[in-house]
Design a protein around this nucleic acid. Structure first.
Lengths: 406, 406
DNA sequence: GCTATATTGTCTCAAGTTTAGACAATAGCC
DNA sequence: GGCTATTGTCTAAACTTGAGACAATATAGC
């Protein structure tokens, strides 16, 4: 039961019904391809005539194309329809603290060109200049990828929903930084920008494979230097009035807990970030600026997992402690948002087999109902490049979105 | 940008456009009444002809009626349209631990008959029997209220979104209890049932006065024996996959904190419930079953506020401590949901002038951005009966809801 | 090889929208 | 009294889905 906002509504015009059914058909082709007009009509509960008109529209716009004819047990063979992802591509950009990553995908988010990376230039203008060059270069070197439909950029910070400026990216030290327009000017392409956690959630929602396409609300939790979280409710990413919705990384586990880079204390992030896990292993707070031995500074969570698998009891203990806190924080997400599924990404999921019991135990400790404690959790490995897929989705998804109505 | 769920969509039929515009018009009449057809057409951006057809529909169904003609500076006088709330009413029921409350309202949630209350019978069947009698009695005694359009019931527990059974109401000791159908059978009326926190949020969203009608996402926090929270996102109450969404009362402030009736420790509820505030004042944990003096057992938060206003330093300290924790928990809500507005209800808001600075301070301590720390907070006083208004809304609102689309 | 059956995709007409604009009724202003 | 502005209704045009007929096509069975 949704309320119509009397200050911001959309009346139906003559073309509205058509537009609705068009988008539904487009999404069904995406979800079920290859699929025939007749099957579409059956799934939609429309007459074949109506579907034919819609499909002709989609064909004319080049969103869909007719492939080979399929097989049928009787009668005329169906002509299969596919989303037309040929000869068009998207450039996905993931700006992180130390390095920036770049990938070329098709419109369904499938990787076309290997991931490129380079050190992140902290000065926004210089970064945009470098990025512009890199984007043009990779497109020139891979003409076979086709026409570029746009550039998707994800950043570790808040992005204003309207102006699309970067309001605040603490790890980069950016405040009110404009990237979208200048990168668009530099490349001559449309540029979309979004917070990385929100984009990851978006990518999972729009995942091409039907089995992965979530059936309900979902939350994406990215455990890395910081904790990025994206929340999808009713098929839409939660943005919030001040563009901070979904920041569960800064919901406390203990208000008297360890200090967090955000300024507060005891945030979830302060318990489960990679630095927190490593600090636990080394028995010292690595966030403090005290000098640490080089081998400690270069030590990563991947290294920690290797040691844990080799039987290092301290490494196992550090991972399991983080796992429990991870589970306790997931309980907050479950009690607050209660999604159908939670995705977890980050370096630590490489050790999922080791930590899952402790995560589940932490979740069960605080989840409000036994069913809720069983909320499905799926891991997303690093080689799936969730952030880059999120960036690609920023460009590819709008064509499939529901029309704004009522 | 909303995704269409390819497993659960709604195609547009011939009547869809009409239905959309009809609901928009109905909502606009509700928001702007009295309003003329011509004004409706201007606001909607439709031709007057189209609006006339829609309005005739609404008139025929009795949802809207034509009142007096208005004034105009020039030309023909407009005929004003109003939501027809004459001679129809709703019975609102609020089941709480010790007492059950009952009120009769019109379709816009305006109180028609004084609040009736009686001790809550803990045995569901007997409660339904008693409730059935009370509902029939109050309707018989107030024929002037008109035809009853349904009964709305709110309970302090989780309600299954599909079956509408009460899955679990801890304070009442209920598990998987059915009330809706048996009360419908007993009264011969349609019965709607919902969790009280969710219903309160629903009531704020559908508040009749335009100034109160929230402009964006909102959260309702009810501070009482327990903490009830309802979240509205995109004009819809968040329910969650296991019907527990919005339970911020059990998101922790400190996982090592005081024990909460839910079984976990350090929940927000354990810091700010009325019992927690009183425990703080008396310097002893009132949740423990140790015997306490009668004057302590009968002491309420209202009494505490009276003492605070009289200058009792310990009372002020207890309230301010609760206020700070209240603010810290609101910060979790702000960081996680980031609503445009937060409503707070419960006994403690009677002392809002005393506690607001401490609440704001707590919120500022943890809110992720200075803007977010300024999130609008509105108090809802007890005499506004938020839970009963929520119950009434359960019955009245569906007629105004947006049609399910795409 | 022939017939019956089943399926796909197109086409036509009917029913029901919004869109555009004309029209009568009404009322204030000069 | 004439002019102008406003409201609400009405009619025709444009475009939608809904229902069903139709041709083309392919298999199964005799």
């Amino acid at each position: 039961m949704r309320k119509i906002n009397p200050n911001n509504f959309q009346v139906a015009t003559r073309g509205t019904s058509r537009e609705i059914n068009r988008q539904i058909a487009l999404n069904l082709v995406r979800a079920h391809q290859p699929i025939s007009r007749a099957d579409l009509a059956r799934i939609m509960g429309l007459r074949r005539g109506a579907v034919s008109l819609i499909v002709n529209d989609l064909l004319a716009e080049g969103l869909v194309f007719e492939g080979a004819t399929g097989e049928s047990h009787r009668g005329r063979k169906p002509t299969f329809l596919y989303i037309d992802s040929r000869e068009r591509c998207v450039v996905a950009v993931d700006i992180r603290v130390t390095r920036t990553f770049l990938m070329v995908t098709d419109l369904l988010g499938r990787q076309l060109v290997g991931v490129i990376s380079f050190p992140t230039e902290r000065e926004p203008k210089r970064l945009v200049a470098e990025l512009g060059k890199r984007v043009k270069k990779v497109l020139a070197e891979h003409k076979e990828a086709g026409a570029c439909k746009g550039v998707g950029v994800v950043v570790p910070g808040m992005v204003d929903r309207k102006t699309r400026r970067i309001i605040h990216a603490p790890t980069l030290g950016w405040r009110d930084v404009e990237i979208r327009e200048s990168l668009a000017a530099a490349t001559g392409l449309q540029v979309h920008i979004e917070n990385s956690g929100k984009a990851c959630a978006l990518a999972q929602m729009w995942a091409a494979r039907e089995e992965t396409a979530a059936v309900g609300d979902l939350v994406f939790v990215s455990v890395s230097d910081g904790i990025g979280v994206g929340v999808v409710v009713n098929g839409e990413v939660l943005r919030g009035h001040h563009n901070i919705a979904g920041e569960f990384g800064h919901v406390p586990l203990s208000i008297d807990g360890p200090r967090c880079p955000c300024g507060a204390t005891g945030c979830w992030e302060a318990y489960i970030s990679n630095l927190a896990t490593l600090s636990r292993y080394f028995g010292r707070n690595l966030r403090e600026s005290k000098p640490v031995p080089a081998e400690v500074a270069a030590f990563t969570v991947e290294d920690l997992i290797i040691r844990a698998r080799a039987g290092d009891a301290k490494a196992i203990a550090a991972l399991e402690a983080t796992a429990r806190y991870l589970g306790l924080g997931l309980a907050s997400i479950v009690n607050a948002v209660d999604p159908a599924r939670i995705y977890i990404g980050g370096e630590i999921v490489a050790a999922w087999d080791l930590i899952e019991p402790a995560v589940r135990a932490g979740l069960s400790e605080r989840a409000l109902s036994p069913d809720a404690a069983k909320t499905e959790i799926r891991t997303v490995t690093l080689d799936e490049h969730p952030r880059l897929r999120g960036a690609a989705t920023l460009v590819a998804a709008p064509a499939f979105a529901a029309p704004p109505i009522a």
